[in-house]
Design a protein around this nucleic acid. Structure first.
Length: 424
RNA sequence: GGAGAGGUGGCCGAGUGGUUUAAGGCGCCGGCCUGGAAAGUCGGUUCACCUGUAAAGGUGUCAAGGGUUCGAAUCCCUUCCUCUCCGCCA
């Protein structure tokens, strides 16, 4: 949620900034609602104040043994008006909340203005795409040759956009996740966290998936749970409703979890292979920071994700998403894109975002400012470090040999029982 | 899943319809006292929101949401959570 005070003070300015990311705020409707809110709320509170003082005087009169019936009749009439006023206020507040919860975050000033991914800005490229002296296969063909990547079994067990891994490929998948967890916990200072994979709607509202993006989620209706689309959701909500000590910041969490996405609206997109699945695994990084340090934290977090690719010897580039390409809650996002020889292009493998106080306001996640003694909103950040399935794809495709075998990078071998090569 | 007991402020804890302030304690902050401290003593100390330039005033908040009532922490309903026992289960 963006600051409601900003919408009151500078509605048109906020609307202009939101327009750069393709969001049209109905300023006329909002201003009208806000004006009515002001008068109805003031009136409601005045009526409540009067009811309170009159009821107290009834209490005093009764204690003094006086006849309270005339007084009661008087206040009863007040009650009707109050009830109607309260009801109207509740409706207006609900309408305002409805709008506010659907407004995306304001882009940071450093974010390039643009419409789609064509307008993203490349920040740096690390490593060179390898030149092959044979025609590189994509991960589907490599997986078929190696064995242990079975899309038919995935379809049989569940449906399209599911896969079954087995044998050395399954182990490689596990090795990647363990390697990432170990790197982030032992060298980057994250606290390993194991979280619920089913969460309630308050949690999803806190990080911004609800109420607007319910269609992207799997919903276990009879129990009221949703499957998490990313560990960002439970990790960030660890601070929901809390007032933290200032010296507890920053908090840095890492979790390895499955992620579940309905992929509504992506029919026909990335249907081949395991690039876009209903279920995939991800190692997720979350920071909770002091508001003045969140942009330093974004650089650090992005660097932590990049380090995984460096150690796995995978070429990648970092791009800053333009205003039109950013996710709902982000003020600024770096995407890390890995080179995929099978597609001859860079593909997203991590997305690192500073949400500033957008999620914190929804969650009421705060810290106590030691100078003022007042609670103040924290900033929250999240990033993949990395998407495990896509890292598996990248590793197979980048480290393949002409005979269909795949070299295991040095950093990963201890997680593979010393195996240096898959297949052949 | 069944039966029972509970949920009150940063913490402990009293409070079964009203007597302008949720008692009291602990912790924390400040004043007084002291050479300085401790002890003592006095005061302050949830959070959110509204009106207001400000000073200030007001509303809500006793797990959450409804209801009854002139008035609800207190009575009623629903939901959530915690604990104990039973059942089931990894």
């Amino acid at each position: 949620m963006i600051d409601p005070h900003l919408l009151r003070k500078d509605l048109d300015g906020a609307a202009a900034r939101l327009a750069t990311r393709g969001f049209a705020l109905d300023t006329v409707a909002y201003a009208a609602l806000e004006e009515e809110r002001k008068s109805v709320q003031t009136r409601t509170q005045a009526l409540q104040s009067e009811r309170n003082s009159r009821s107290k005087s009834i209490g005093r009169a009764k204690a003094a043994g006086e006849d309270i019936e005339p007084l009661k009749a008087q206040v009863a009439r007040l009650g009707e008006e109050l009830k109607a006023s309260e009801q109207r206020l509740k409706e207006i507040q609900a309408a305002l909340d409805d709008i506010a919860l659907g407004v995306p975050n304001l882009p940071h000033e450093s974010v390039p203005v643009g419409n789609d991914e064509a307008d993203n800005r490349v920040e740096r490229q690390v490593g060179e795409p390898r030149s092959f002296d044979f025609a590189p296969k994509d991960h589907v063909d490599l997986g078929a040759a190696l064995g242990g990547m079975d899309f038919d079994a995935g379809a049989t067990l569940a449906g399209s956009r599911f896969v079954t891994l087995s044998g050395p490929v399954a182990r490689l998948h596990r090795a990647l996740a363990w390697f990432m967890l170990d790197l982030h916990t032992s060298e980057h200072g994250y606290v390993e966290t194991n979280v619920p994979l089913l969460v309630n709607d308050a949690t999803l509202t806190g990080t911004g998936q609800l109420p607007k993006f319910a269609a992207d989620l799997f919903h276990v209706r009879e129990h009221g749970f949703f499957l998490i689309p990313t560990a960002e959701v439970p990790l960030t909500n660890l601070v929901r409703g809390r007032i933290l000590d200032a010296d507890a910041l920053p908090l840095k969490y890492v979790a390895h979890t499955p992620c579940f996405r309905s992929e509504a609206g992506s029919h026909g997109k990335d249907v081949r292979g395991m690039l876009r699945q209903h279920q995939f695994e991800k190692v997720e990084l979350v920071h909770v920071t002091h508001p003045q340090r969140s942009y330093d934290a974004l650089e650090a977090l992005t660097g932590h994700a990049e380090e995984v690719l460096k150690r796995l010897e995978l070429p990648y580039r970092v791009v800053t998403l333009c205003t039109g390409d950013m996710g709902f809650g982000a003020a600024k996002t770096y995407d890390i894109e890995v080179w995929l020889p099978g597609q001859q292009r860079y593909r997203e493998i991590s997305s690192c975002s500073n949400c500033e106080d957008f999620q914190a306001r929804r969650m009421l996640a705060r810290f106590r400012d030691p100078d003022t003694g007042r609670p103040e909103l924290v900033h929250t950040l999240n990033g993949s470090g990395l998407a495990v399935g896509r890292t598996l794809i990248a590793l197979l495709e980048n480290h393949q040999e002409a005979d269909g075998s795949v070299m295991i990078p040095e950093a990963l071998r201890q997680y593979m029982g010393g195996v240096e090569r898959l297949g052949a």
